[in-house]
Design a binder for these strands. Structure first.
Lengths: 201, 201
DNA sequence: GTCTATAGGAGGATAGAC
DNA sequence: GTCTATCCTCCTATAGAC
């Protein structure tokens, strides 16, 4: 798979990640891929079609990515933790999440569709694992799994944003650690008084 | 304040929100503001300087925006709820959050600085209100306020992203409702068994 | 302060030769 | 399949007149 077509898709994936849709030009793609003008327009009708292929490629490879954690070994809570704390290139942001800022991406169903799909797929798995966790008593039982799944996906996506704003990867870690700390059922309380933070100050 | 300078800043704010930094051209700003080429370059050295002024303007007006909720009337939890559920143009995204995807914004301290500042300011207030809520017994006491503050800001920022990906404002609402449901101290449990979701299915 | 002119390069694509 | 030529518009300014 080292033909021009594959290299074009690969380059587009990289550039979309780094510069977004608007910021990625056909010329830049060609140069990054080491492929001529004519070659690119032979394989793809234009920028949008190429981007569509690249986004689909990225989206499709993300599914096994999070499934590996969410459907992996360990207790439900351990799997959630594995997903949330998975190794990520935090300061670069989410390959698909960053694209939804682009007007053109959101306006074009062939560009937005794959992103919609990965997110839906992730939400489904997250909700399922949360439910499992509730049955196991690892996750507090008085919350709605489908809703909290959206919360968790948002923490991840927002963690990228906050970390980039501060140029500090640790913000992402703090965001997901905070979410994890809220997920577990707390120790039973006696009265209405608090028990104090687990990590004081 | 209806002079050319103000109109340029106002237009830049709008266009940055809609198209991001890369997607916003001087020409588009001029047309949107009804101001000529020469006028723009008289008031500002170039695109970056104009964007810097616009971002600073936006960032500065956001602080009283969230303070109004977080420092407002009501119990700590009510204030957090007011902030998280505040009226937002969800599908348009966050005026400042969306900008940190832009390479150029993150690379230029005069562009990223104001964003860094609003976020820091929001985190500080969120942590303070969370602490208050813990003292009042409204927020579970066994979590770290500074960390959960980052989680909440991430939920908001990520809620924008997820909602845009699905083109569904309700995803944002679900994300923050889920976060709120995790914040409160749960009813004391008897054994290791769950009590069942408050909102089943 | 604002206008017009000018400019070199990039963006996005089409056409036809090889 | 790939290459080169060509096209028209936009991008981001600079220069100088009014």
């Amino acid at each position: 798979m080292d033909d021009a077509r594959s290299r074009l898709i690969e380059s587009t994936r990289d550039l979309l990640w780094e510069r977004g849709y608007t910021g990625t030009s056909p010329k830049a793609i060609q140069q990054h891929a080491g492929v001529g003008q004519g070659s690119m327009y032979h394989h793809f009708a234009g920028k949008a079609e190429l981007a569509s292929a690249a986004i689909r490629s990225t989206a499709e490879e993300m599914v096994p990515g999070f499934r590996r954690h969410l459907d992996g070994p360990g207790s439900p809570l351990e799997r959630l933790r594995a997903y949330l704390l998975a190794d990520r290139d935090v300061l670069r942001g989410c390959r698909v999440g960053r694209l939804v800022q682009d007007k053109e991406v959101v306006a074009d169903p062939t560009l937005r569709g794959p992103i919609d799909d990965v997110f839906s797929s992730a939400l489904e798995r997250l909700a399922a694992v949360l439910r499992e966790g509730q049955h196991a008593g690892e996750v507090r039982g008085d919350v709605a799994p489908e809703q909290v799944a959206i919360t968790l996906l948002s923490v991840v996506q927002g963690g990228f944003v906050v970390a980039r704003a501060h140029q500090d990867k640790e913000r992402f870690v703090a965001a997901v650690e905070g979410a994890l700390s809220l997920l577990t059922p707390p120790e039973p309380r006696r009265s209405g008084k608090r028990t104090g933070p687990a990590t004081p100050r």
